[in-house]
Design a protein around this nucleic acid. Sequence first.
DNA 1: TTACCGCTGCGACTTAAGTCACTTGCCCGG
DNA 2: CCGGGCAAGTGACTTAAGTCGCAGCGGTAA
Lengths: 233, 233
Amino acid sequence: MTEHSSVAASLASVPLFSGLSPDEVRMLAAHFIRKRYGHGELLFSEGDPCRGLYIIESGKLRIFKSSPNGREQVLAVEGPGGSVAELPVFDGGPYPASVSTIEDCQILFVSRQDLHNFCLQHPEVALKMLAVVGARLRRLVGIIEELSFTTVRQRLVAALVRLAQAKGKQTDRGIEFELSGTHQEMAHQLGTVRELVSRNLMRLQAEGLLDVEARNIVVLDMPGLSALLEANP
Amino acid sequence: MTEHSSVAASLASVPLFSGLSPDEVRMLAAHFIRKRYGHGELLFSEGDPCRGLYIIESGKLRIFKSSPNGREQVLAVEGPGGSVAELPVFDGGPYPASVSTIEDCQILFVSRQDLHNFCLQHPEVALKMLAVVGARLRRLVGIIEELSFTTVRQRLVAALVRLAQAKGKQTDRGIEFELSGTHQEMAHQLGTVRELVSRNLMRLQAEGLLDVEARNIVVLDMPGLSALLEANP
DNA sequence: TTACCGCTGCGACTTAAGTCACTTGCCCGG
DNA sequence: CCGGGCAAGTGACTTAAGTCGCAGCGGTAA
């Protein structure tokens, strides 16, 4: 397979461009460049002028805000098939947040200009864009809700429940899975600091809901855990 | 002026539909209904299925999330020319937040179906939509940033500075303006409770930065106030 | 092997945030 | 003119959140 046609193959499977004809995908593919990034590399920082759109072929990256005090708040984690910076490509403004990889990544890039031109000829792509931006907006509203109504403890529990559902394996001891990153990274996703993640994990263990062995988590009492999401005291 | 043509006149001045020809605006106007709401009325609640799009002719309304414990977090305040629920109209999902008026309002409403049909024939409206949704997304990111990086005090100061710039009048004593609502409403916008707004205002007064007389604020030391936005101690 | 470094676990402490209960003042309607 | 009700000020308290400092652990690169 040539480089070019492998790009086309990737694009065809991206939700953003589903619905295009093979010919259209091929035309579009001509404008993309493939890039590789190592773990922890920065694609761009908030405030940078928008150069173009990124599409993830493999690996994961995180969209985040960082504060002068070194705190970080993760807005989203995107995996294969996901895209980044749909918005500023269209409104012309700067990137509203920074993006870095959390795994080695293979990424397709298209310049703002090229994508813009393509969209003018294919209005249905703009509608897809609206759907993607919409989904992002809903997630942001969810983050705001969590930040202003819940405690760190509840946010952590919510994250654990999500992880358990997403990649938990039922074993003889309970539902088992691995934390996606370090405690530090979890803290960034929950909008807090490392110590609180560590402490709250220990506390959940002390309460008999979890079993924590380094990064391996065993949920012993799923109903009990979920119950913490409802109650407020 | 007939009812219908006055609707058309209003629509023509809304950013979302600027760029349409007078004929197009007239066609669009036929699908709108004018509604009136009193102060404090609820247009819809989060989770409701999306019926259509709202455009504000006069008055103000607030988009907010509310928690089971009675807390509220305001996501945006929209005034004349603003629109509400652009997103769910397109992605078909439920409303992600609730909306209520904070003044008497005159509002134009169009059903999801009618707007959808119109957009299919006028793709440029979809692009405008993208811009509006984009602006909203940026504001949400800003809220997240404030919630996770700043204190209530800093958020309050930021809000005061914004108000001072927006509607402050230079007088002999300093920059003078009125709070937009009750302390309770401010608290909802800052994602906190009434008491903290009250206390922090008093504290700023004690520090000689403000003069507070009921709902009337006089900024005595604008540089000093702005300085609080930078420093972290 | 050793030295170093990043991740983790803790204990002790400080401070922001929120809760509760109550007072005061003001406006509006009867 | 009086009483009810909402808005605001305030003190005392509880608790979540965050900070600091340090110790142990495990891997890896020299």
